[in-house]
């Protein structure tokens, strides 16, 4: 493991860490989104699923800690890289005029979008996991928690906004991680763009369908 410090110090190494942690996060959001869809099957389905997830404390906490560490690495790399990148072109040397030719809005919003996702996550955990900011939180009835939460339009709007951020983050992130991990070939260009687009559309839509359905009274 003697290579690790040097690896972590280098820009390319940090970026590879972001990509690897990014994949873990992507897998988590897919799993989470699919799990959440059980809400459509009725209160019992989703509550049972939640209960199952929490059935073993060890598994639950291993999972939570793993996710936390992943997120910390992801965010820490981002902070470090952002600092490095900023200092590579100090403010005194900014251009009077810049024109972007290639960078998509998704790519350019990775940092602020990421920060927004982080803030959302904090709020989200206080909201639906600990219930701290939930008006009527139950530790066992997830379905109830959701129904209460998403009858309020501005909460839905907030989750919706977070999902837009997630869509953008995934769109550039998934496309980009192939590049970062060196999985590249002319034949791969199109498939990887499709994959990024598909995930960026399907995951946020899947997520947001629940608050919307609750708000519109589809789920009761």
């Amino acid at each position: 493991m003697s290579w690790l410090p040097a690896f972590y110090r280098s820009t390319v190494g940090k970026k590879i860490l972001m990509a690897v942690t990014g994949i873990i996060l992507v897998v988590f959001v897919i799993e989470h989104m699919v799990g959440n869809l059980l809400t459509f099957k009725g209160p019992d389905a989703i509550n049972a699923y939640a209960a199952f997830l929490k059935s073993s404390k060890e598994v639950l906490w291993t999972f939570r800690i793993g996710l936390l560490v992943t997120l910390i690495i992801h965010v820490d790399s981002m902070v470090q890289l952002t600092r490095l990148n900023r200092s590579s072109r100090p403010p005194a040397g900014r251009y009077a005029k810049t024109t972007h030719q290639a960078a998509t809005p998704a790519a350019r919003s990775m940092r602020w979008g990421g920060v927004f996702l982080l803030l959302f996550l904090v709020y989200h955990l206080l909201h639906l996991t600990t219930g701290t900011v939930h008006p009527d939180f139950s530790h066992t009835d997830v379905h109830h928690n959701l129904m209460v939460a998403f009858r309020i339009p501005w909460k839905v709007a907030m989750y919706g906004a977070a999902m837009v951020a997630l869509a953008m983050h995934l769109y550039h992130g998934v496309w980009s991680l192939f590049q970062t991990l060196g999985v590249s070939h002319p034949h791969l260009e199109k498939p990887r763009l499709w994959l990024a687009t598909a995930l960026a559309v399907v995951i946020p839509l899947g997520f947001v369908s629940i608050p919307l359905a609750i708000l519109l009274g589809v789920i009761t």
Binding site: V12, K15, L81, S88, A107, S176
Partner: peptide
């Protein structure tokens, strides 16, 4: 002191 790559594609 060059920066890292965010895969912006501006360079290309």
């Amino acid at each position: 002191h060059f920066g890292g790559c965010t895969n912006y594609g501006e360079c290309h």
